[in-house]
C-alpha cells in the first residue's frame, strides 16, 4: 500500500503535528483556567499584554495564583508531550512525519512550538510597550515627559549659572540620598551638573554650595558664599565669595 502524499510529505505532517500540539495547548490552558476560576480569553489577553515586562536586572513573569506562568507552561508541555506520544503510538503507520518518536524528541518539538507561542505573545506585548514608549519619547521628546526632566532642568540651570566651570560643590538636600529614589536623584543630578562636581571627584576644597530640594535653601547658605543663582525656594547654587 502506498502512503497518501498529503500525509507523507513533511510539510503536511509537520503542520498536522504543530496543529495537534497547538490544540492540546489550548485545551490544557482552558482546563487550567477552569480549575483556577479564570476566563480563558482573559488569561490569554493578560499573557499577550504582559509577556514583555522589561527590567535591567530581572524580568518577572506573570504570576497566577502564586506561581510563575512558566510553571503552567511546563505542565501544559508535559501533558501535551504525553498525549502526542500516545497519539503517535496509536496512529503509528498513518502519520510518520519524523524519524524519532522518543519522549525526548516529542518534548523538543512541543517545546519549540511553546517557544514560538511565547515569542508571538512577547511580540504582541512588545508592540504595546513600543506604543507607550512612542508616546513618551517619540518626536524627539528626550526627557521632556519623564520624571528625570525636573532634575535635569534644575541641574542644567545650576550648571549654566556656574558657567560650566569645574566647581567642587557641597550638596545639601532634604532627600534621603543613601538609597533608592533619593540616591538615583543624586546620581542624575551629578550626571547633568558635570563639570560641576558634587561627588567629591575634584581633589580640592569646596568652592561651591548647591541646595537641591532643600526647604528654605537661601537661609542655609554658609557664610563666605554668595548666591549665584536661585531657581526657587529649594534649589540654588552659591559659590565662595571673591576676596
Amino acid at each position: 500500500m502506498t502512503e497518501s502524499p498529503s500525509v507523507s510529505t513533511p510539510t503536511a505532517s509537520h503542520a498536522a503535528y504543530a496543529g495537534g500540539v497547538t490544540a492540546l495547548f489550548a485545551v490544557t490552558g482552558w482546563v487550567l483556567c477552569l480549575i483556577g476560576g479564570y476566563s480563558f480569553p482573559e488569561a490569554l489577553d493578560l499573557v499577550a499584554r504582559r509577556s514583555y515586562q522589561p527590567h535591567h536586572n530581572f524580568m518577572t513573569y506573570i504570576f497566577i495564583s502564586g506561581l510563575s506562568l512558566t510553571c503552567y507552561l511546563f505542565l501544559m508541555i508535559a501533558v501535551t508531550v504525553m498525549t502526542m506520544r500516545f497519539a503517535a503510538r496509536t496512529f503509528e503507520g498513518i502519520l510518520k512525519p519524523f524519524a524519532d518518536w522518543s519522549w525526548a524528541a516529542h518534548a523538543r518539538r512541543v517545546t519549540v512550538i511553546a517557544v514560538i507561542g511565547m515569542f508571538a505573545m512577547q511580540l504582541i506585548s512588545l508592540h504595546g510597550y513600543w506604543g507607550n514608549a512612542r508616546q513618551i519619547f517619540g518626536g524627539k521628546a528626550g526627557y521632556a515627559k519623564t520624571n528625570i526632566q525636573q532634575t535635569k532642568m534644575i541641574a542644567e540651570a545650576l550648571g549654566k549659572a556656574a558657567g560650566h566651570r569645574p566647581y567642587k560643590a557641597a550638596l545639601v538636600t532634604d532627600l534621603d540620598t543613601r538609597d533608592g529614589k533619593g540616591l538615583l536623584e543624586r546620581h542624575i543630578l551629578a550626571y547633568f551638573l558635570w563639570p560641576v562636581d558634587i561627588s567629591g571627584i575634584y581633589q580640592k576644597e569646596d568652592d561651591a554650595w548647591i541646595a537641591f530640594h532643600k526647604k528654605d535653601a537661601a537661609r542655609h547658605v554658609p557664610a563666605g558664599y554668595t548666591v549665584l543663582y536661585q531657581i526657587d525656594d529649594e534649589n540654588l547654587i552659591a559659590v565662595v565669595a571673591q576676596k
Binding site: 524580568m59 510553571c71 507552561l73 511553546a114
Partner: peptide
C-alpha cells in the same frame, strides 16, 4: 526556568 528573561 521561572523568570521572564529567556522565554523557554
Amino acid at each position: 526556568f521561572l523568570s521572564g528573561n529567556w522565554n523557554l
